[in-house]
Design a protein around this nucleic acid. Structure first.
Lengths: 201, 201
DNA sequence: GTGTTTACCGAACATTCGGTCAGTTGACAA
DNA sequence: TTGTCAACTGACCGAATGTTCGGTAAACAC
């Protein structure tokens, strides 16, 4: 025994991880329903049936991808920095963290944000996502109650628009060229907290 | 002749317009690729083949829906109020108008924003949309050049985030209950131009 | 009444879908 | 050299897909 490296180099071929990674990128290009197993096989450089050696099926690929996005988001919710202190500070932390997770797990979160509930898998993901959204909405409401954000706007509406901007990152962000997650978060928080307008003298 | 009302009551059955309207709402529920002609038929209360009496096919339904969204957006671009005056005022007009069109033509714009370019129809729509996006980006850049918006943020990034918030409306807005298009635009412009934060004394 | 048009149905079409399975390949251990 | 086994192929399945087509019932025109 012990002739084999525990993290063996996998000389050739795929594993469940590489299949998932490539599958998710194709899902994001063509949409989940618009992607056939044949499309995935082509992207992987194998035949359709080879995919079933690594993963149980198409819907399991989706389920694993969505979990990867949701686990990241919920890890942040349970962070102590999201639970104590002034609501406005916790909100800023959550926004910053959301942007980071969104960028770190871009393909997975992108897929999550496009889910419409067509199957039990998608509905379960949608429900977890709604739970996350409720958490954010509660935070904004608290910040309003504490007087940290202006009183002439509806907190529920603010939540939607704020995270509309955050989530839009999946629609246009390309990690290769351009800003870092921190750049994005800084710009986003500057705009939404302090406003774009320059003071008119 | 003249025995027929020019706006005849259409005693029974569908017409291309009602088919499009219902089809788009189903497309938005399940996604275009996730919607079968059988799904549409069920929603229309007819058989699959009846649909082909009114419209040439599934992709034509998509094309007509996308045009309806894009025509609205481009009508605004050619409005004189979007072409003259301080860039910051024109930007505010365009944001306000975008929200209005988005709400007025909610299902059509929703469909447009989910297009990924899977067919020639989708690619053509994407190209028209990109043209619209370039117009907005140019406006923000001008507002920055005129010193009307803060200089410490990247105008391109501002454009993405601003219209990320605008476009997110399709993800959560329900016209029945809740705010009007003007409410949405007011809140959105208040946040992004003046900021959420209350001044700390 | 008769003929025409409108709006539809039911059956079938070729194709594509996700998925299965018996068998093959090639790297490795002994 | 032989045997093992992970990784894969190719042929195939039943179901679902978008679309076509011959027929038809009801409303209309005359």
């Amino acid at each position: 025994m012990a002739t084999q490296n525990p993290a063996r180099p996998r000389r050739r071929g795929h594993d469940p991880e590489s299949v998932l990674s490539i599958a998710v990128s194709v899902f994001n290009e063509r949409g989940y329903d618009g992607t056939s197993m044949e499309d995935l096989a082509r992207a992987l450089g194998v035949t359709k049936s080879a995919i079933y050696y690594h993963v149980p099926g198409k819907e399991q690929l989706l389920a694993r991808a969505l979990d990867r996005a949701l686990d990241g988001l919920f890890a942040m919710v349970t962070d102590p920095r999201a639970a104590a202190g002034p609501a406005i500070d916790r909100l800023e932390f959550v926004v910053r963290q959301s942007v980071r997770i969104l960028v770190d797990r871009l393909p997975y979160v992108t897929l999550l944000l496009r889910v419409r509930g067509n199957s039990a898998t998608e509905q379960a993901a949608l429900e977890r996502r709604r739970e996350f959204d409720r958490f954010i909405a509660h935070l904004v409401k608290q910040a309003a109650a504490e007087g940290s954000i202006r009183a002439d706007v509806d907190p529920a509406l603010v939540t939607r628009l704020l995270f509309g901007a955050v989530n839009s990152i999946t629609e246009w962000y390309h990690p290769s060229r351009g800003a870092t997650a921190d750049d994005l978060a800084n710009t986003l928080l500057t705009i939404t907290l302090d406003g774009l307008r320059t003071p008119t003298p």
